Amino acid sequence: MVQNIMKRNNVHIRGKGKKPLIFAAGFGCDQTVWNDVFPAFEEDYQIILFDYVGFGNSDITAFDLMKYGELSGYVQDLLDVCEALDLKDAVFVGHSVSSMIGLLASLSKPEYFSQMIMIAPSPSYVNDPPAYYGGFEMKDLLNLMDLMEKNYIGWANAFSITLLNNTAKAGVAKNLEDRFCSTDPLFANTFAKACFFTDNRKEITKATVPSLILQCTEDVIAPRVVGEYLHEHMPNSKITYMNAIGHCPHMSDPEETILVIKNYLLEQSVPLIGEGVGNING
C-alpha cells in the first residue's frame, strides 16, 4: 500500500530535519513549482513533495473521472500520502486551491497537521452578493471552462498571463503555460471544475489548525478582499500582505515567499527539529 501511494503520487522526501514540511502545488501544476522554495528548508525540515493524480509524474492510470471530479478526490490524495508516511504535526504549505485541500484534510485528520500556510487561497471563486465577493461571476467561469474545452492551448496562454498579472515576469508566465500544455486537457479540465465551482466558506469556520494566509498584491484570482474574508472567518488565522504581484509568488518571488514562511514558523515557535517523524521505509 505504501509503495503504491509513493508511486501513484510521485512522492519525494528530502531534507535533514525531522519536522515534516509538505508542499502542495496549485491547480494544473506539479511539485517542481517549489524548486526555488523548498531548498531553503532542507537543512531543518523533512521536505515532502508530491503530485496529485493526473499531474506531473503521478501514475495517470490511477485517474478516476468520478473521484477527481470533486475536490474530495485531491483531499484523499493528500490524506493517503500523510498516512503512507505516518506523518504527525506536519507543516502544510498549499498554493491556491491546495490551501482548501489542506484545510479539508485537516478537518478530517487534524493530527496530521500543526500549521497551515495558505498561499493565495480562496474558499470560493464565485461572487455571491452582497455577502461575498470571490472575484468571478459564474458566467465568466463557465466561459473559461468553455474555452478550455474548445481551445486548450489558447486557454493555457490566456490563463497563465492572468495568473501572473505581471508583465515583468513574462518568463514565469511562459513556465506556467508550458506546465498547463504538458498536462492532459481531460485531467486539467476535471480539476478546474472541482476547483472553481466549489464553495468552502462553511468549512473554513470549522478550522482548528493554526494558519497563515499569504495575500499577494493585485491577485486577480484571489483578490485582497478574499484573503481578508478568510482571515475574518477562519479561526486561528493570521494574514500577511506580500509585495509579490499576481497569484504565484512561490514562482515569481521565491525569496519573499521563503522569508514570510520562515518568519511565521518562528513566530509560531515551531521547533526546527520537531517530533513528527515520517516512516519513509514503509
Rank of each mutant, 00 (worst) to 15 (best):
M6K: 12
R8Y: 05
H12Y: 12
I13H: 09
K16P: 08
G17Y: 05
K19V: 13
F23S: 00
G26R: 03
G26F: 02
C29M: 13
T32K: 10
V33D: 09
W34P: 04
D36T: 08
F41M: 03
I47K: 01
D51Y: 02
V53G: 05
N57C: 14
S58G: 03
D64Y: 03
K67C: 10
K67I: 11
V75Y: 00
D77I: 01
L78V: 00
D80H: 03
V93L: 00
H95R: 03
M100P: 02
M100W: 01
L103C: 04
L103K: 01
K109T: 05
A120G: 13
A120R: 04
A120P: 13
S124I: 07
V126Y: 01
P129W: 10
A131E: 15
A131I: 15
Y133N: 13
Y133W: 13
D140S: 11
L142M: 10
M148N: 09
K150I: 15
A156H: 03
N157Q: 11
F159T: 13
I161W: 06
I161V: 14
L163N: 10
L163M: 14
N165W: 08
T167K: 12
K169Y: 15
A173N: 07
A173E: 07
L176N: 07
R179S: 09
R179Q: 12
P185S: 06
F187T: 04
A188G: 13
T190V: 10
C195I: 09
F196T: 02
N200Q: 09
N200I: 06
K202V: 14
K206N: 08
A207D: 07
A207K: 08
I213M: 02
I213E: 02
L214A: 08
L214H: 02
Q215L: 14
I221G: 10
H231V: 12
K238Q: 15
M242G: 11
G246N: 08
H250Y: 09
D253R: 12
D253M: 11
E256S: 03
I261L: 05
K262I: 03
N263G: 10
S269F: 12
S269A: 14
G276N: 04
I280A: 08
